[in-house]
Design a protein around this nucleic acid. Sequence first.
DNA 1: GGCCCGAGATGAACACGTTCAAGTATTCGC
DNA 2: GCGAATACTTGAACGTGTTCATCTCGGGCC
Lengths: 244, 244
Amino acid sequence: MTPRAQPTTGKGAETRARILETSLRLFLERGYEGTTMRLIAKDAGVSVGNAYYYFKSKETLIQAFYRRTHEEHLVACVAVLEREKGFEDRLLGVMHAKLTTIEPYHRFSGILFKTAADPESPLNPFSEASLPTRRESTTLFAQVIEGTKLRVTKDLWAELPNLLWIYHMGVVLFWIHDRSEGRRRTTMLVERTVPLIAQVVRLGSLPLLRSMTRRATAFLAELREEAGLPEAGDGTQEAPLEDA
Amino acid sequence: MTPRAQPTTGKGAETRARILETSLRLFLERGYEGTTMRLIAKDAGVSVGNAYYYFKSKETLIQAFYRRTHEEHLVACVAVLEREKGFEDRLLGVMHAKLTTIEPYHRFSGILFKTAADPESPLNPFSEASLPTRRESTTLFAQVIEGTKLRVTKDLWAELPNLLWIYHMGVVLFWIHDRSEGRRRTTMLVERTVPLIAQVVRLGSLPLLRSMTRRATAFLAELREEAGLPEAGDGTQEAPLEDA
DNA sequence: GGCCCGAGATGAACACGTTCAAGTATTCGC
DNA sequence: GCGAATACTTGAACGTGTTCATCTCGGGCC
């Protein structure tokens, strides 16, 4: 019934890995649409049904890309956060690392985002299934501000990682639709908006704007609270641990 | 080859309309996945091939929903803009009208957004194909500010409709993922963010923040310019006028 | 060793969206 | 009115992702 995400035998794990690697190679060679499940199975030396024994669908195979980029990005950010010490530079470095990491997969951004946009999809950044990944991202942005001597009000400090995560999603959304060579426009977007964000954050703590900042952060907390109860209540605590 | 979006004969138009209405009814009754092209054809009293004579794909059929809501929203906004005179009230009214209009279709928001997210899709709000629709939306938001005595700098005034359109897209994105009953959370989001926007806009014209506002609007102009030349140059001026 | 049970593997079959060569009806120039 | 072009219509066939009853194999148990 449910695909075997974690094979029990060593042989099973090997087969699973072979299917995954074959599919990623074929996706790169022939694109998503150009790669059929039959071809993947044939090239991996298994039957079609066997591929479905390990992976729920063709989509879950391409989702492996997503995970891969996510992890690569986290790794790349370690060096960035080691090197940079100012808020603006850190954020800029993290965003640049993001763009560099995902660039090879721009070709698949369409299909990736297509599935990601579906509220039911585990790839969807807002869904519960992707909560672990999202938490990792938020933690990353928390690190971006933690290492700095940025002085902001407490409430904003608490909310900032989430806001930066949303900003980062917006950039990715822009990137997906960016048809310029080398994703020139997205790079420009980042280089212009990061300083702007830094400025807004600094200004947000001025007495003049304090009340507004407080209003905004209070609202965000309220919104989260509103979501918290019903969704934690009705949903069973299932965490299917979708494939890799 | 290309589907007949505008039939030449009256009979053709009738068939086309019958297919469209049947599909919308079935989508409502059985959902998108539960409605097959064979069923649509059978219920409409035509052959499968005939449906494809008028509509490029199953997706284009559901896109009719999108157009419909868009037009309904524009109509609903006439009354709102007639009634309200302040910027905040106008924006709030327009956004409320949006939520009310699209609510019946929340069930399809997943599949709709799924196709809308695809950079190739004509439904994609950023694509060239949907430029007319986007222009209509931007015009709507221009009307929102035109009727008011809002005092902002010239550059912000010019950019504001675009920014509001982006804001509105963000709200829709939130709405799609909103699982709360009656879309309570999205309503809350709008009611809280609209006043915030109004405040930011007002503050943006203060001397203290002028320079930042100018920087931001200049960047937006730059970004548009950057996009303008290459994309207008290489793309032929084709405007296929996809189905209704 | 014989047995069994479950993990692993098979490929035909299914359902679907889509295409296409071929048909029929309608319109238009003359 | 007639022929030809054009609009419209058909349903079988194709390719695809996915499912399922069935088979194979390997290791644990007596």
